[in-house]
Amino acid sequence: MAKIDIKINGKGYSETIDDNILLVDFLREKIGLTGTHVGCDTSQCGACVVHVDGDSVKSCTTLAMQVNGKDITTIEGLSEGDNLHPIQKAFQNNHALQCGFCTPGLVMSAVDLLQKNKNPSEDEIREWFEGHICRCTGYKNIIKAVQEAIA
């Protein structure tokens, strides 16, 4: 067992955890933040993307202990009460989700894209989402949503 001190969505947590627990399992099972999903569990699908110190990363391929002391943002940390984050709002406006399983990861990646590149081209958006899979194949509206969020 190991001791972790971590900030998640602005709130500090101090927990005792297994040395080998993945960040995504820690978030879901220990902290109860189930918005971050486990899809493929092999860093291919992107359903598990969260931010670590501002960078979008795949939490299924990160040990919780690796990010001890870091600042984590999950999908639950984006909205302010009932006020959705502009990316969430754009996903809603453009029907950029069907089943919704891949959505939390895509939203987190989109937020990271726009904080690094204020005006990405369609190609740059598509390239940024290379590590995401939407099994409903709703990519077109996902791209539209990001484009609306830029505008």
Binding site: S43, V49, S56, V57, T61, S109, E130, G131
Partner: peptide, 8 residues
């Protein structure tokens, strides 16, 4: 890999 993989 992809952008998220390249971050780690």
């Amino acid at each position: 890999g992809d952008p998220q993989v390249r971050h780690r």
